Amino acid sequence: MKKEGLLRQGNKSALMAAIVNAVISVIKGTAYIFTGNVAMFAETMHSLGDSANQFFVFIGSALSKKRPTDRYPNGFGRVVNLVLLFAVIIVGIMSYETIKEGIHHIIHPSESTGLWINISVLSAAILLEGYVMYKAMKEVIRETNSQAKGIAIIPKSFANLSKAKPATKLVFMEDLVATSGGLIAIIGILLSYYAGLHAAEGIASIIIGAMMFYVVGRVFLDNAKGVLGEADDELEAAIAAYIFTNKEIKDIKALYAMKEGEDYHIEMKLEIEPDISVGQAIEIKERIENYIQAMPAVTDVIIEFEEDDHVPTWNKGNPNPVP
Results as ranks from 00 to 15, higher is better:
residue 1 M to R: 09
residue 3 K to V: 13
residue 5 G to T: 07
residue 8 R to K: 14
residue 16 M to Y: 15
residue 17 A to E: 03
residue 19 I to R: 04
residue 23 V to R: 01
residue 35 T to V: 07
residue 38 V to D: 09
residue 42 A to T: 06
residue 45 M to A: 03
residue 46 H to W: 01
residue 51 S to M: 07
residue 52 A to C: 13
residue 53 N to P: 05
residue 55 F to S: 10
residue 55 F to T: 03
residue 56 F to T: 06
residue 63 L to N: 07
residue 63 L to K: 14
residue 67 R to A: 11
residue 68 P to I: 02
residue 70 D to L: 12
residue 72 Y to V: 13
residue 73 P to Q: 08
residue 76 F to D: 01
residue 77 G to S: 04
residue 81 N to F: 10
residue 83 V to E: 07
residue 84 L to Y: 03
residue 85 L to T: 08
residue 85 L to G: 14
residue 85 L to P: 03
residue 86 F to D: 05
residue 90 I to L: 09
residue 93 I to K: 03
residue 97 E to F: 11
residue 98 T to P: 05
residue 98 T to N: 02
residue 103 I to S: 05
residue 106 I to G: 10
residue 108 H to N: 13
residue 108 H to D: 09
residue 112 S to E: 05
residue 114 G to S: 05
residue 117 I to R: 03
residue 118 N to T: 05
residue 120 S to T: 14
residue 121 V to L: 02
residue 128 L to V: 04
residue 134 Y to I: 09
residue 137 M to E: 09
residue 138 K to Y: 02
residue 148 A to E: 01
residue 149 K to P: 00
residue 150 G to F: 04
residue 151 I to S: 04
residue 157 S to V: 00
residue 159 A to W: 10
residue 159 A to K: 15
residue 169 K to G: 04
residue 170 L to Q: 15
residue 173 M to C: 11
residue 180 S to F: 15
residue 180 S to W: 04
residue 181 G to Y: 01
residue 183 L to A: 13
residue 183 L to Y: 06
residue 184 I to P: 06
residue 186 I to Q: 00
residue 190 L to V: 08
residue 193 Y to H: 15
residue 197 L to Y: 12
residue 198 H to C: 03
residue 198 H to G: 06
residue 199 A to F: 15
residue 204 A to Q: 01
residue 204 A to H: 01
residue 207 I to Q: 05
residue 208 I to K: 05
residue 209 G to S: 12
residue 209 G to R: 12
residue 214 Y to F: 13
residue 214 Y to R: 09
residue 215 V to C: 12
residue 222 D to M: 13
residue 229 G to M: 06
residue 234 E to N: 10
residue 235 L to S: 13
residue 237 A to Y: 02
residue 239 I to E: 03
residue 243 I to Y: 07
residue 244 F to A: 10
residue 246 N to C: 15
residue 247 K to F: 08
residue 251 D to M: 08
residue 254 A to Q: 10
residue 254 A to M: 06
residue 257 A to V: 09
residue 260 E to T: 14
residue 261 G to N: 07
residue 261 G to T: 08
residue 262 E to F: 03
residue 265 H to L: 08
residue 270 L to E: 11
residue 270 L to W: 05
residue 271 E to C: 08
residue 272 I to P: 07
residue 280 Q to K: 13
residue 284 I to T: 12
residue 284 I to P: 07
residue 285 K to R: 14
residue 287 R to K: 11
residue 292 I to C: 06
residue 293 Q to V: 09
residue 297 A to G: 04
residue 304 E to S: 12
residue 314 W to F: 15
residue 315 N to R: 14
residue 315 N to A: 06
residue 318 N to C: 08
residue 320 N to R: 15
